[in-house]
Design a protein around this nucleic acid. Structure first.
Length: 868
RNA sequence: GCCGAUGUGGCGGAAUGGUAUACGCGGUGGUCUCAAAAACCACUGCCCUCACGGGCUUAAGGGUUCGAGUCCCUUCAUCGGCACCA
């Protein structure tokens, strides 16, 4: 009968007498410690703590009602890192709050006939409960709820600061309109022509909208100096901003004069032509001699005036068709759909070559990018090439293909888009590839027909939403004074607690007389309020600043508090926010810095994206698939510690992985073994009936078994510390498992070992290393060992590299790179000796098969490779 | 189409250019039990062999190297992002 089995029998007998003592019951201990930590303000970060600060932030959750397993994943990793960092001597601030405004609340409210406010606040209450059950070190004293007036007052105040500095403005412009959500959307919220939230194809609407001038910061937003961000995210932001360098060239068009009756003479006269300049943006001014046609976006304002009477009907039909089809066609996967377009019947003059080319409209030219006009260079642009082929327009080669002789472009299958020397280009002929662009720009600037120019894909951020559940935009419209900002001392502009929802496409606030009607802050005459509300991304663009000073009634934050805590040291959240939240927040910080409110450039120094937890079937969780894991149920069954540990054990933290119901059983079994290891050895050391002599006493020479345990302890500290620091939680837990396996094996081999200080030290180290990952069981067992302070207040254990070195090493003997034998040796064995031993190995000799060893490679401490 | 990431046992996954498959799940056999569950012990990449032992294996193919899962090239597959951006 093995020792462990005997122990188990004894434990089983004892269970009858004291169940509480011997059974691991996560439900009980987790509730107990959570209550204790709350009482003792474990998570509360003090501003006056002298230790170095560490701002450990997770992305603000939306209170959808239930904490998703994905939240658990994100927050567990963040919490482990936070607890670990705290034990390493930092004053860690790890706040939590709620991004509480937004469409889902309003949609749910309409569906269930309850008010968004009630729905949201109820959800928050439930999520607070769920968040507490994680056993995370949240600083609840700094909680923010973005839909409450003490928060949105400052959201409104910030809007006014942006307005004051001309970074918020109102304009009438074509906006993305979601007919299902009944509101306009920012460009970032339109994915593939459809609403990001409900996937309804968006429409274009001309409405007065509020925008934030994020484009002013386009260049600075392209710089990521000093930021430790995933390459992927930086690339996504860079592509989103989409900086293109090239030239703006002004082509000249002549609007035909109208035939008109002179009222004085009664005779018909032809008015003189009107000369208009139409700028185009191009990245390839070196191809300007290859222009054979000119294309305007169908929405271009000059289209109507540049259309000849003969073409009018066809043009109008095309514009109508483009308006209807564009968004739907964008959704189709057929990216290579044939080019369409209509000629206007008029011409433009190429200001460099002097040639006249026809003007067309085509939907491949977008009004929203560049100038909404394009010079058609079919030989050197694939789209223009396809367009020319479709309408039999001439193709003219003006760039050489390296040293290849010129060929007839009409025979080509693709445009030649590579750079090369200029040809067929008048005075520019022969300009080499690296100078071609600059020479043409220089010439155009000299002749004043064009200039170097830069264009961005990034548009200003549209922030008006025609919905109720958001922060009201603090603006009043006065018949006399126009748009007037609400004076700061009159903030907040309170959102009425209730709203009457009507599917009108206008904010419900418009139908609330008590909200709508007010007086002009300037003249006191009757006026109306802005009834649009702010995009919720505004709320989440500054919450990390508010956490530093969450309850300040006099300011959005006190400068010294923000200076103490910001910027965020580590920000952990989903990659789906790469071009929205993360870009907006950077913009906010830069703008506020320029206004003098902040003195740093970037909000988030280190950014980390956790992976996605998939359903047990390996597919993204969704209600319709029925593969959703509800945290409450698994926590109930296995305990929060097991859920935390299993989530981290699934795979690398940035990769996520499938949930596995057997997998969590395994982790739970591990925690049972930890419990057994500690409680059983505690029994043995704490009572006298099992004490066996033979273990070393203090001061005596350690036995081999003790040296082995001490080596294991130091190795595990080294390994787990590195893994936590790099957020490799899966391998950290594998190490912690090996630690327990090693201790159990030692215990089985020499039961007396458990009485030694060495073993006791190993157990204490195990609990400290477990503390960040499974905080409750670590705390409970720590106290069982007789400690009165929290395990979470211990400093992180140190290790001695010298003590991690093995007493004997295994040297691999290879012949021609293949494993043939193994040698046990002392770590400091001499090279000569190793070579001799390896060559003498019968197995190596057999593999050599009589051939002489040409060469012997020795990698100290690892292997010998005999080349024969 | 472009950009990026990833391909390792039955499964999730480990591996500073140096013992591939750590750790866990699952499976098989065993101990305990009247029995089952739990727990514990042993084995568990594939092929050949009664065995000793040998051969093969990190998506596929090639290369560099004494030695490649790891570095380089080609191809394939999966996932993510962008997609007429002039």
């Amino acid at each position: 009968m093995s020792k462990t089995v005997q122990t188990f029998q004894r434990v089983k007998t004892e269970m009858a007498h004291s169940m509480v003592r011997t059974m691991y019951q996560p439900g009980e201990i987790e509730a107990k410690w959570q209550a204790r930590w709350a009482e003792e303000d474990y998570g509360v970060a003090r501003d006056d703590d002298p230790r170095p600060k560490f701002y450990n932030l997770v992305m603000l959750p939306y209170p959808s009602g239930d904490l998703h397993i994905g939240h658990w994943y994100n927050y567990t990793g963040a919490d482990i890192f936070g607890r670990f960092t705290r034990m390493r001597g930092y004053n860690v601030m790890q706040p939590i709050g709620f991004d509480a405004f937004g469409l889902p609340a309003e949609n749910a409210a309409i569906k269930r006939n309850i008010q968004p406010r009630t729905w949201t606040l109820d959800n928050i209450e439930n999520m607070r409960r769920q968040l507490r059950k994680m056993g995370a070190g949240w600083d609840w004293s700094r909680e923010i709820v973005s839909c409450l007036p003490d928060y949105y007052l400052w959201t409104q105040w910030l809007f006014l600061q942006f307005y004051k500095h001309d970074l918020a403005y109102r304009t009438k412009a074509p906006a993305n309109w979601c007919p299902s959500c009944n509101t306009t959307l920012a460009n970032e919220q339109v994915v593939g022509g459809a609403c990001e939230r409900c996937h309804t194809p968006v429409e274009r609407r001309e409405i007065d909208q509020w925008l934030m001038r994020i484009t002013k910061y386009a260049d600075e937003l392209l710089r990521f100096d000093g930021l430790d961000w995933p390459e992927k995210t930086r690339v996504m932001q860079t592509n989103w901003i989409g900086k293109s360098e090239g030239a703006e060239v002004r082509f000249v068009a002549h609007i035909p004069g109208k035939r008109r009756k002179n009222p004085a003479t009664g005779k018909f006269v032809i008015e003189p032509e009107e000369r208009v300049e139409i700028p185009v943006f191009t990245t390839r001014p070196d191809t300007i001699y290859g222009v054979t046609f000119f294309v305007l976006a169908p929405e271009h304002p000059l289209v109507e005036r540049l259309t000849t009477p003969k073409q009018r009907k066809a043009v109008q039909a095309y514009i109508e068709q483009a308006r209807h089809e564009t968004e739907i066609d964008r959704l189709s996967t057929d990216a290579a759909r044939p080019k369409t377009g209509v000629a206007l019947g008029t011409f433009v003059t190429n200001p460099v070559s002097g040639e006249q080319v026809p003007i067309w409209i085509a939907d491949y030219v977008l009004m929203g990018y560049g100038t909404g006009a394009v010079m058609g260079v079919p030989a050197h642009d694939q789209r223009d090439f396809e367009f020319a082929r479709m309408f039999n327009l001439p193709i003219k080669q003006v760039i050489r293909d390296g040293d290849e002789p010129l060929t007839d472009p009409e025979t080509w299958e693709h445009a030649l888009t590579a750079h090369g020397a200029m040809v067929n280009s008048g005075q520019f002929d022969g300009a080499p590839p690296d100078q071609a662009i600059s020479k043409v720009i220089e010439w155009m600037e000299h002749k004043k027909v064009g200039r170097a120019a830069t264009t961005y894909r990034l548009r200003d951020w549209l922030v008006s939403r025609q919905r109720y559940w958001g922060a009201p935009i603090p603006i009043v419209y006065c018949p006399e004074h126009g748009a007037v900002p609400v004076p700061e001392d009159q903030l907040p502009v309170r959102l009425p607690d209730e709203a009457n929802f009507k599917p009108t496409g206008e904010s419900p606030l418009r139908y609330d007389p008590s909200f709508l009607h007010t007086t002009c802050p300037i003249c006191g005459e009757p006026a109306t309020r802005e009834t649009d509300t702010l995009d919720t991304f505004i709320c989440s663009s500054w919450y990390f600043l508010r956490y530093a000073d969450a309850h300040n009634d006099n300011a959005a934050w006190a400068p010294d508090k923000v200076a103490k805590w910001l910027p965020v040291d580590r920000y952990i959240g989903g990659a789906e926010h790469a071009v929205m939240h993360l870009l907006y927040a950077r913009f906010f910080v830069k703008a506020l810095r320029d206004m003098g409110w902040l003195n740093f450039d970037e909000p988030f120094i280190k950014l980390y994206h956790q992976g996605t937890v998939l359903g047990p079937d390996g597919v993204k969780m969704s209600k319709s698939r029925g593969n959703v894991i509800a945290p409450d149920a698994v926590v109930e069954r296995y305990g929060a510690d097991a859920v935390r540990a299993f989530l981290m054990f699934m795979g690398p933290f940035d990769q996520g992985g499938p949930w596995n119901n057997q997998g969590i059983e395994g982790v739970r079994r591990y925690l049972n073994r930890v419990w057994a290891l500690v409680t059983e050895t505690l029994d043995e050391s704490g009572s006298d009936h099992h004490v066996v002599n033979g273990a070393s006493q203090d001061g005596a020479t350690p036995t081999a078994a003790e040296r082995g345990i001490e080596r294991l302890r130091h190795r595990m500290i080294a390994r787990v510390t590195d893994d936590y620091a790099e957020m490799r939680f899966n391998t950290a837990l594998a190490g912690l498992m090996e630690f327990v396996n090693g201790l159990n094996k030692a215990r089985e081999e020499s039961p007396a070992i458990t009485q030694t200080p060495t073993f006791r030290a190993a157990i204490e180290t195990l609990l400290t290393l477990l503390a960040p990952m499974t905080p409750h069981i670590a705390e409970e067992l720590w106290h069982m060992l007789g400690h009165t302070e929290s395990v979470h207040d211990q400093s992180w254990p140190a290790y001695d590299p010298a003590l991690t070195v093995a007493e004997t090493i295994t040297l691999i003997v290879q012949v021609n790179g293949k494993l043939r034998d193994k040698l046990e040796a002392a770590p400091d064995i001499a090279e000569d000796e190793v070579r001799a031993l390896a060559l003498a190995s019968p197995k190596a000799q057999a593999a050599l098969d009589g051939r002489p060893a040409k060469k012997v490679i020795y990698v100290p401490g690892r292997l010998v490779n005999i080349v024969g």
